[in-house]
Design a protein around this nucleic acid. Structure first.
Lengths: 252, 252
DNA sequence: ACGAGTGTTGCAGTGCATGCAACACGCCTG
DNA sequence: CAGGCGTGTTGCATGCACTGCAACACTCGT
């Protein structure tokens, strides 16, 4: 809507691919070098881009700080975190928390199976939306027209032979997930990895987040993983309860 | 330099504080509502802000993805990571990796302590620059005039009684760190937490990053932590070696 | 039903972003 | 050392795109 801002912001994903110099940026934006320079300068002043020693530009530190702050302001995440850790202690597997936003599903928290390390390393990465168990739960709760529209728009990459093949199958799966109130991904993303997931709901019943437990076949079979379903659902329900204020936390 | 972009980007830190509605954004920018609306729309199209169900704006998902990609493009981080993990396995404490950028020091990787008592820190969070051991190493390597200028500009919050009180003391500390080639923070940030840190150098000898081991007093005393110094330095040197191509990794 | 508080849209004026051209570098190459 | 690039940078005139205004839609309370 605002041409100048639009151009400036287009620089960011461009630099995310890797450092670039002024000429490259100007070319890819289709503007004069001097224009690109001024845009870059403005981005630089705000710390969003950084000029490295060879004069090329890359994304800057403020971006991390912003993403960081944004993350901390997600209240679902804060409430959920201790529950996720506890679940991880009980079952030992990787635990994820994800939300839906603008046609994308993204992880906002993660507890690693072996040790609770590098929490943020994968966070922000878009989830394989057509196969991930958490994605199914989040999409299954969208209003029907939105769900259909989205299903049509998506790509359906065949990660494995059990990946969701197309819109029709996907919508059927979402319908099933919607009714049963939980979801699985049995080797649909990576051949040897299974997940089982449950929804976190707000006070109005809408799904605000989804959490999952993932484990490779070599550790537990799919059937064994499914025995964790009651535990996963209890955890998700506990988060839902706290989130919707039924179990008021200390403040607020 | 570009007014429109400048205004648009000013919205981001504002939203980082928490969700805001159109009126609030317009007020704090000092512009008309319609102007703020168009800026927000542009940011929205690029996924940098998200409109939540109550119509208020907050930072969006693309921000995470960008920060994520930027992080993955930092080659020091990639090279260092396995070394950090190994160090953590050997000593059990929290390990950090940090870089300097535009008057700020920020953590770019972290391996959590295996002890139950952990230190609070997060990747992307700006480091307490006047006291952190890694910050001392990174700043100590700046050219003198830059170092002096920065030292004058900084705030010196007294986190504890042992925090660096002001520019003079800080510059003295940096000089010492510069000569000895390693640094500590003994309760300067949190009363009960000590750190010991060593620099990672590029092929030209300049400090490109710094790594540290941190542990609370209740787990090990400061003296005990200092016995880890040789191990920390060896690890940092190993990373330096690999980074400057002395031990060529598989490609490049 | 009404008013107060939102967010939204068309429109005219002009401030501001734009592209151009000229300049200032550093870096090869002859 | 001159000369040729390939960079990044700066002033300036032009006109477009951004701005603020005012009127409009809309959802809330009470």
């Amino acid at each position: 809507m605002s041409q100048t801002v639009d151009r400036a912001l287009s620089i960011l994903p461009l630099l995310a691919e890797g450092p670039a110099d002024l000429g490259q940026v100007a070319d890819r934006l289709g503007v004069h070098k001097s224009t690109a320079l001024r845009l870059l300068r403005t981005l630089h002043e705000h710390g969003l881009v950084y000029r490295q020693s060879d004069q090329r530009y890359r994304l800057g530190a403020r971006l991390f700080a912003l993403a960081q702050e944004a993350m901390e302001n997600l209240d679902v995440r804060e409430i959920a975190h201790s529950h996720l850790v506890r679940l991880n202690e009980q079952c030992g597997h990787t635990v994820h928390l994800a939300v839906y936003e603008e046609n994308e599903v993204l992880y906002i928290d993660k507890v690693e199976s072996r040790y609770p390390v590098r929490m943020y390393s994968r966070i922000g990465k878009p989830v394989a939306i057509t196969v991930a168990a958490v994605a199914k739960l989040l999409l299954a709760d969208l209003p029907e027209h939105e769900r259909r529209a989205l299903a049509e728009k998506l790509d359906y990459p065949m990660y494995t032979s059990r990946s969701t093949p197309g819109p029709a199958a996907f919508l059927r799966e979402l319908e099933k997930v919607r009714e049963q109130g939980w979801a699985t991904d049995l080797g649909g993303h990576e051949e040897s990895i299974n997940c089982v997931a449950a929804p976190v709901r707000g006070a109005d019943g809408r799904v605000v987040a989804a959490m999952s437990v993932s484990a490779p076949n070599v550790v537990v079979t799919a059937d064994e993983l499914l025995t964790l379903l009651p535990l996963v659902r209890r955890t998700a329900d506990a988060i839902s309860g706290e989130y919707s204020g039924r179990t008021p936390a200390e403040l607020q």
